[in-house]
């Protein structure tokens, strides 16, 4: 079972998420058995298969921001980023459950661990935690705060993408308005009624046509994604005012703030808010049904 990939999980059992490579792919050899055992043993860490779902974004400059949209997206300017990995999909319920389950073992029985996602009893299409893991294993995990997302990322030996990393992964080198291009298409789960997921979340990877230039999925709609950066309304303007003529290198946002930046729009938003440049912000302790996250990692 590959819990990163949608529509591939079979025989799901709550509390059991073997993150092992299929024996058929390894081959039943002594080495294969050893690898299998090792991978079972490593089920709470990053497995070999994880890298399959990380997309390498090569080093280089890209265009950040927009001259024609909201004030906080201005101006359009060049930014240089070192090579990095970004996860192809948002973190799912099933993936987050592994982390949560391990956390559960460290707290007294009957107590919920610190990083427990919020329950959405009033939204049965999203549901309560952990029951919803069984029902919707491949839905992006929601009801997680920025702190939860950060803790999960650290547990995986990764981190949240910076705002610049997120934007580059979404728009590519061609300055796309939406990850798939500039045409208005129903390639994302938004508040519109023609996307097949009205008033509910979609499993990750449900919109293959909506992938970005780099092949990253779900960067528009479904859930807003926490990024590492604090929000600053004039951050793009500062980012464009590099002291030298060279583009800003690996910017990490303002040094302080109250709100963390979210990107990508969600199932409750209009398509306009799901563009590759639209910037949103929330208090980092908020846990809502329309916010999830994905992971990133410096490449070298």
């Amino acid at each position: 079972m590959n819990i990163f990939c949608p529509n591939r999980s079979r025989g799901f059992l709550l509390g059991y998420f073997p993150k092992v490579t299929s024996p058929l792919r390894i081959g039943i050899t002594a080495r294969g058995l050893l690898l299998l055992l090792l991978s079972v043993g490593m089920s709470f860490g990053a497995s070999a298969q994880d890298t399959e779902n990380l997309i390498l974004i090569s080093a280089g400059t890209f265009t950040m921001g927009s001259d024609t949209r909201a004030a906080d997206e201005k101006p359009m300017h060049k930014v240089y980023l070192d090579a990095y990995y970004i996860s192809k999909y948002e973190v799912t319920n099933a993936e987050y459950y592994e982390f949560w389950k391990q956390q559960s073992e460290t707290v007294p029985p009957g107590q919920m661990p610190q990083y427990t996602p919020e329950n959405f009893t009033h939204l049965p299409q999203i549901g309560d935690w952990p029951a919803r893991v069984k029902q919707f294993p491949n839905h992006p995990v929601v009801g997680v705060s920025w702190h939860d997302a950060n803790a999960y990322a650290a547990w995986k030996g990764m981190r949240l993408p910076t705002e610049a990393e997120w934007e580059k992964a979404a728009r590519g080198y061609t300055n796309r308005t939406w990850p798939w291009g500039n045409a208005l298409e129903p390639y994302a789960n938004t508040a519109a009624k023609d996307d097949g997921y009205e008033n509910r979340l979609a499993p990750v990877g449900s919109f293959p046509k909506g992938k970005s230039y780099y092949g990253v999925m779900d960067m528009a709609g479904n859930v807003w994604e926490w990024t590492a950066d604090w929000y600053g309304d004039v951050y793009y303007w500062h980012s464009s005012q590099a002291a030298t003529k060279r583009p800003k290198q690996n910017p990490t946002g303002p040094a302080v703030g109250s709100w963390r930046v979210l990107r990508g729009g969600s199932w409750i938003d209009t398509i306009a808010r799901c563009s590759t440049t639209f910037r949103f912000y929330l208090y980092p302790n908020l846990k809502t049904s329309f916010v999830g996250f994905r992971l990133a990692k410096t490449a070298f």
């Binding site: 329950n119 959405f120 009893t121 009033h122 808010r273 809502t288």
Partner: peptide, 19 residues
């Protein structure tokens, strides 16, 4: 949990209305 659930529902609804 019923109270908290109602709290969550109100906050979520407030955000949607603000949007």
């Amino acid at each position: 949990s019923g109270d908290h659930s109602a709290y969550v529902q109100h906050v979520e609804q407030a955000f949607i209305l603000m949007f």
